[in-house]
């Protein structure tokens, strides 16, 4: 469904953030993108929806080459790619409801969105999503009154109300405590299963990644150096991705967690 072909990004400073990344994500598959800070994980997902313009190569979503679209076409395709951010990226001074409905901006004309006159079907869907993530009573709260975990749930709602085919998730748990992190990861993965969504989740917590996904892609200095099942992540592979370290402990704890959460 999503196909990256030799996707490359070289920043103006000359830093090669991505070099010829080939990746294919079938419909409904959730993959974790792991790698050290600065490996190009954020750049990769931002090159897919072109918040960052790739230097060369292409990204194709259901047969449409996103990299060559004009601005109108790009906006149409962005509607099909929901994005979830590390620092939630909610508009702090708008209410929870306005934040969720902002996910419909690509479908609604300027004046309707300016006057907050969203179609009733969108409002219904927003309430359904809020209920699903357990924040039904928060609809009229301002986003900056919410806790981190609550904000990320709103962020998830905003991405899902776009009715996307693909979720681009950038470090969803990096600002959250361990328990909330798991809850958020579980919610994202569940939502993807319910709606048969593909997702690319940037994450640097290897344990958390192994707990929830079926496929892991390892990125190091812009190169894809691992693509396989979580079980294949050996100390050897982790050393290649992150560098020399005693990885045995990491792998041990993951096995324990897997049994615990293996429902």
């Amino acid at each position: 469904m999503l196909k990256l072909d030799k996707l490359t990004k070289i920043y103006k400073t000359g830093d090669k953030a991505l070099s010829e990344v080939d990746l294919e994500v079938p419909k409904g598959q959730v993959i974790a993108l792991i790698g050290p800070s600065g490996a190009g994980k954020s750049t990769l997902i931002r090159c897919i929806n072109r918040l960052v313009e790739p230097t060369s190569g292409s990204a194709t979503l259901d047969g449409i080459n996103i990299t060559t679209l004009n601005s109108g076409g790009l906006r149409r395709e962005r509607r099909r790619m929901g994005m979830i951010f590390q620092e939630y990226a909610l508009v702090e001074r708008l209410t929870v409801m306005e934040n969720i409905l902002s996910g419909r901006l690509g479908y609604v004309g300027f004046w309707r969105s300016f006057l907050r006159k969203f179609p009733q079907s969108d409002v219904d869907e927003a309430y359904r999503l809020l209920d699903r993530v357990g924040l039904a009573h928060m609809a009229d709260k301002r986003a900056d009154e919410l806790s981190g975990g609550q904000r990320q749930r709103v962020g998830i709602c905003r991405a899902l109300i776009q009715d996307p085919a693909l979720l681009l998730v950038d470090e969803p748990t990096a600002s959250l405590d361990p328990k909330t992190s798991r809850e958020i990861m579980r919610l994202i993965v569940e939502m993807c299963r319910e709606r048969d969504l593909a997702a690319i989740i940037n994450i640097h917590d290897v344990n958390l990644a192994k707990m929830f996904v079926q496929r892991v892609v390892g990125l190091e200095m812009g190169h894809m150096i691992f693509d396989g099942a979580p079980e294949e992540l050996s100390p050897d592979v982790l050393t290649r991705i992150y560098g020399e370290e005693d990885w045995e402990a990491t792998i041990e704890t993951v096995d324990d967690d897997d049994e615990e959460d293996g429902s």
Binding site: R75, V91, L105, F110
Partner: peptide, 9 residues
């Protein structure tokens, strides 16, 4: 960025 990513004009 988040608003732009939703496909807003």
């Amino acid at each position: 960025e988040a608003i732009r990513a939703t496909g807003g004009s």
